[in-house]
Design a binder for these strands. Structure first.
Lengths: 200, 200, 200, 200
DNA sequence: CTCTAAACGAGACGGTACGTCAGGTCTTTCC
DNA sequence: GGAAAGACCTGACGTACCGTCTCGTTTAGAG
């Protein structure tokens, strides 16, 4: 049985890519709020209509960039050494650096702004954070390495609290320090056990 | 020697109030993004210039509304019964209701949007949450009522994680349930200890 | 013996006709200015390219419709009773009706608009009016029936003046009356002579 | 008793004038159809909204230019020597020159195009032609100087026929000659009387 | 009690961006 | 291999607000 497909030309992949790249570039340079469809169209050497044909809004477009991993630096993946506390510390330190550095300082906030406006962006962010192969999964794998990491612990909520704290920091523009990362980890998975071996 | 003060009329308090009220009303109806200076001016029967004379931007104006408590419902104060876990549960339940109800569903997200754009709003939110007489203070007062609430615990970060989790929920538009509140509390202050001292 | 014409497929006559009909229909409904190639293509179930293949512009297309007699009602032919004055009166009355009736009110004006933009339409209109077998011819045949209809009179110009007056009326949107028709005839071929020679 | 006028800024006359001038300039250069609001706004260093605030359409704007006498050359006034036939001849010759010269060739047609689209332009043209102090009036004053110029002749219709013939010429892009002017005059006011003195 | 400077309502202004429509060209798939 | 469908770039449309700038009016001190 044959699929009945419409005739006529088909989406131009070069164009598609050029638009995403222009979006990512301008997002990085201008931030979500100052991003304009016209600016993207111009930058990508593309007609506005071509953008509106495939995306219904600025938010949609940014969301696709986000899933394509074009908005945030690669360094944002949670490392995996087995030592959950250390992994989180490095990861948070990296994120905090992004929040603090003048160049990238607005990116996360911009993304939050986009998420507040556009459902797709919000979901994407949540999905990418709470997914199994992500923070939650790592926490689960670290059972026993923190007071809160026991069998059946609310891993999703712990992850949410962790990321949420980061988001809040970004919003309040309080540049975080290295120690803040450690304190935050203590806050969500409990402090390092004070009494070692014998306890076990 | 006397100070030379300028002659002429002084800020009209009625006008001031009318603008704040119009802002709050339109914020509730339209949300931060769709709020316009022109709309506020019209609603408050006021010239645009009168707004620009006293506030430098939409964000400023919204920030003042926020501190004046005109944007969020009163029911948002953290109760104080001495039972920290129960207080938090009620408080979160209330907030989750706001996030879930269609009428108010957008308000928090709108505030986040404002915070992302305007430093003042961000600080205001943080201040009002992490202040001594607020969540942090209450956590401190509840020492011993949760695994994470010990002497010298990172109370600020715990509060941050808690609020952050709420913010993230609002952003991702995942309507939270009653149990989510409990799990979140477990996540940040640890689960209710099933068996006490003897266990150790 | 058949002419050997170029090989390959030849213009599809159904398509051709469908385009003309769609054009005429939309011209009547929307007028020249609001007529669009895309609208015609859609209406005729035809690709835009098929239109551009055979006509260079909207004007061209309308011009062909015009010569095919698809744009103006049939009732527009100048009657021929031998009484030139009466023939013209009936003809003008008919045209004036077209100008006045709300339904058809815009058609002539639309055609003028097209003529102003597209040379072909202009020539077509002129040709069809000033041709021998048309107004001019009839005037010539009516020699002696009007002060201006003498041997060697400027028949072309008289016809031009007559039609021109109609065009001007259409442009100025002054709905003409029955008496206007008579006065116009008096104006271009002179009044009916009340008393002949002796008067002079 | 005082008139209560609205307070606030008042129409800026410089701006008003700049817009009209830009319109006239671009009309002459591009013609009615290719005239764009954006082009005018740019040329006049003015925001688009400022144009839309005072005129509802391109046609309105052109109409105002027309009455302000900014669209057609001054040389277009009907001369007045008492000799109606000679006056008309000079006047027509001038108009025919405008129709024929490549530079100005499109102006009249452009105006017709505008009239077809916009009622105001149509009326303006008619008004300025059929007014007492204009062609009609001159014809009336010339009673006796042409077969058709008798007491109670349909002067309006004669003027209409004359102008209409010119319009038709412009539309059909048939460059007229000097003799055409004479023939047209013969057509509308009758030929010069063949029998001189004795008759009078 | 007058004078005067600022506050005020109103809204014109030069702009930027919006989201839509259509033009004319080019490309893909169907018949 | 011609034609439908329609993607593409371009450019103009008319609208919404921006933040600044007059206007004329009102009003609260300073003198």
């Amino acid at each position: 049985m044959r699929m009945r497909t419409r005739s006529g030309p088909v989406r131009n992949e070069n164009t598609h890519q050029a638009i995403l790249e222009a979006t990512a570039m301008l997002f990085a340079r201008e931030g979500y709020d100052r991003l304009t469809i016209e600016g993207i169209a111009h930058e990508a050497h593309v007609g506005k209509q071509t953008i509106y044909r495939w995306w219904s809004s600025k938010g949609d477009l940014v969301a696709e960039c986000l899933v394509a991993g074009m908005l945030l630096p690669d360094r944002l993946t949670l490392p995996d050494t087995g030592e959950i506390r250390e992994d989180l510390r490095q990861w948070l330190t990296e994120i905090f650096r992004i929040i603090a550095e003048p160049e990238t300082e607005g990116m996360l906030r911009s993304l939050i702004s986009g998420a507040a406006e556009n459902p797709q962006i919000g979901s994407r962010i949540r999905e990418s954070l709470i997914g199994t192969d992500s923070v939650t999964g790592r926490l689960e794998a670290g059972i026993g390495q923190g007071q809160n990491l026991y069998e059946g612990a609310p891993f999703d909520e712990i992850a949410e609290a962790l990321i949420g704290a980061v988001v809040l920091r970004a919003l309040s523009r309080t540049p975080p320090s290295e120690e803040d990362a450690i304190r935050l980890i203590d806050a969500v998975i409990g402090p390092e056990l004070p009494i070692p071996q014998s306890q076990r």
